[in-house]
Amino acid sequence: MSPRSFRLVALGFGFAFLYGPILWIVVFSFNEGRLVTLWSGFSTRWYAELLRNRRLVDAAGLSLTIAAVSASLATALGALAGFALARLGRFSGRGLLAGALGAVLTLPEVILGLALLLAFVSLDSWLGWPGRGARTIVAAHATLGMAYVALVVRARLADFDRSLEEAALDLGAAPLQVFMTVTLPLILPALGGGWLIAFMLSLDDVVLASFVSGPGATTLPMIVFSSARLGLNPQINALATIMVGIGALAVLAGVWLVHRMERGR
């Protein structure tokens, strides 16, 4: 086999593996029958049923709120941490900060979830706060998200020429002005990307949420997970298709925005 055709086979097989299951979900979300695996005709009935499912719609609303709040928190905290690691040189506790962020990134979710729950329970018994529910899910997701944001921001800062900041100082900008006029605009794409990653992580997480949530707060992934445990459900296919569609739109919008920013300025 020539290298060229080997390349094509490797990519073809790999992408078929990556995208086949997603395609399957989309196709069978339009299946008429209740049996998800056997095609019996085109229909959009599962979409209609999905929208009438109050529990799902409520959970989706809660999940989006939690994702937006936790992603914003994660971006603020992660940006500070990433900036500190990339720009402050040596400070006491630097290794600890970097190590903790790295550990959050790599630890199995089950451990992180269990550990966070124990902390929330203890805090609650000492201070009568924070209880268990949406608030604790936000805190858990913000912790996970900040590690990703810090990683992205740190990499971005490490990549760009330090002399840009020195040039701004040299031209009369005080440190805060340097940050606002040079550093911030240059890491803005990283912050946006970091926010998006944190948002997606939150929207997707079932393990942390299951551990730290209380009786009042059920997120969308928790519902999807418990229904998937019971087996296939055409409503889940419809929901998944909508999420795939939103994800694809978000990516397209992002690509278009980046393109436009690069062209326009």
Partner: peptide, 28 residues
Amino acid sequence: LALVALPFVTSFLIRVYAWIGLLRPTGS
């Protein structure tokens, strides 16, 4: 590369769910 990373945009849970439909004895 973007195509490799793109599945991350769709829910991890949903992607695992898809395999139930593909792999089980009565699956596709």
